[in-house]
Simulated scan of single mutants.
Amino acid sequence: MAVFGCARCGAELTVPVSPVALPDHARQTYGHELLPALMESGTYAVDPEPSGPPWRRWSEVGAQEAGARGVFAPVPALSFGSRGAVVVAPGDVRGTVLIPERCQGYCLGLDGSSGPNLACARCGQAVATRVDDCTLWQAVRLDPDAVQTLTADAPALPADWSALGREYEAIPPVEQGGWWDPRWEAALGVALAHLLAASAGTPVSLPDGLLAETLGRALDLLLPRGRAPRKAAALAGPGLPVPGPAPDILLVPRHPRTGEVWQAPPGVAHTVPVSAGVWLQLALQPARLPAPATGRLPDGVERDDPLPLRPHSLFRPDPRILLHTLARLPAVREPWLRAIHDRVGKSPYSRPF
């Protein structure tokens, strides 16, 4: 675990927190209401990308400089802030005060658009940015140039894949109101970007079930039709045998603690990382009868009471997360994939979004 503090005076700014991977929905905007905390209490993640002001437009930066910063397709603006912000839950922050002149927000809270809005209560140095406005997942981002690690982490342990289904929970795809969970929309927006890159512009076939229900329509609409043969994609990971013959693409879990991607066996051309909570639901979802059963249920058949939640709309991967991920994949420089990026960018809420 680690405790982070002010780099100027050494005051403690967080409770002890443990490292985890940055969630896929860290940059998601969703709905027009207050969202919960991005990070679970007692955890922190390090954002590898630059964040916060100053911002520069794509036209000012240019493709060459943007590419050197890991962005390979046009984006509205690039952050030239520092890399390595430490992201924690707002409730895990201590010893800070708001900076009133930097408390701008769009609607119901703070959006962090003016830069750090939290100062160290002891010495007054700006140390973090709190975000809690509507449509944004609530979080505090500690400025890597203004904080230090007071209590060092223990040496990082390798990912324990055997404990994935035991220590981490699957995320149900549908909320009580019949809406798709926004974390699914973000996670599969990331996965869709990697799937498109792995396809090399060839149609992709998915196994029947939830995976096809969530990603099949998007792949069919974004990839050219009529090209054969299709590339086969399937799920694989700890506790899940690799189907034979070996598919062209495997969707595998990304460890929620380390961010490490599960290593596929030799002979698989491409792997697509999927958020562990979503992967667990996709890979380990129990089989259900297609219709309610009557009388005594046979062995091995689950009860359908209560009935599983069903969405009231087709699944839509988050288009902004898709574009963000695509723009940072070198493959987007290929003309066919750049065309998909530009098409989605011009109409981010048309089919299938």
Rank of each mutant, 00 (worst) to 15 (best):
L157W: 08
P155C: 12
Y168V: 05
L215Q: 08
E101Y: 09
V147F: 01
L34K: 10
A21I: 01
E49T: 05
L235P: 00
A73M: 06
R310S: 15
T129V: 04
V17D: 00
P16F: 05
V93L: 05
Y168T: 02
T14F: 03
G165D: 08
D47N: 15
L221D: 09
G189I: 09
A293P: 10
P207S: 13
V174C: 11
G239C: 12
R303A: 15
A228K: 09
D160F: 06
E40H: 01
W180R: 04
P319N: 13
T129Q: 02
P238T: 06
A197N: 07
L13M: 03
A152W: 09
P155F: 10
D132T: 05
F353V: 10
A77E: 15
E49G: 03
G124L: 09
A331H: 13
P292W: 10
R351P: 07
L110M: 14
G209P: 05
R27G: 03
A68Y: 12
Y349T: 13
G178H: 10
Q104M: 05
G177D: 15
L282P: 02
G91T: 01
D153G: 08
P290H: 14
W55H: 14
A139V: 07
P50M: 03
G239H: 07
A159F: 04
P253K: 02
Q148Y: 01
I99P: 06
T151E: 11
L195G: 03
A2M: 13
G295W: 06
Y349N: 12
V61K: 08
T149K: 04
A66N: 01
R166I: 04
G267T: 07
R102L: 11
S205V: 14
D220C: 08
V190T: 12
V87M: 00
A197D: 09
V252Q: 08
A156M: 11
L284T: 03
P311W: 04
P116M: 02
V3K: 02
S114H: 14
D304E: 15
V278F: 03
Y30Q: 00
A139P: 01
V140Q: 03
V87P: 02
R69C: 08
L337M: 12
V261E: 12
E40R: 09
A200E: 15
R343K: 13
G84Y: 02
R257I: 10
L222P: 03
L34C: 09
A339V: 12
L34A: 15
A264W: 07
A331C: 09
R316T: 08
D181A: 11
R303I: 09
Q28W: 04
R257D: 04
R130H: 13
V274L: 12
P16V: 04
V88M: 02
S18M: 07
S162P: 00
P54K: 14
V17K: 01
E33V: 11
D132A: 04
R57E: 15
P36C: 05
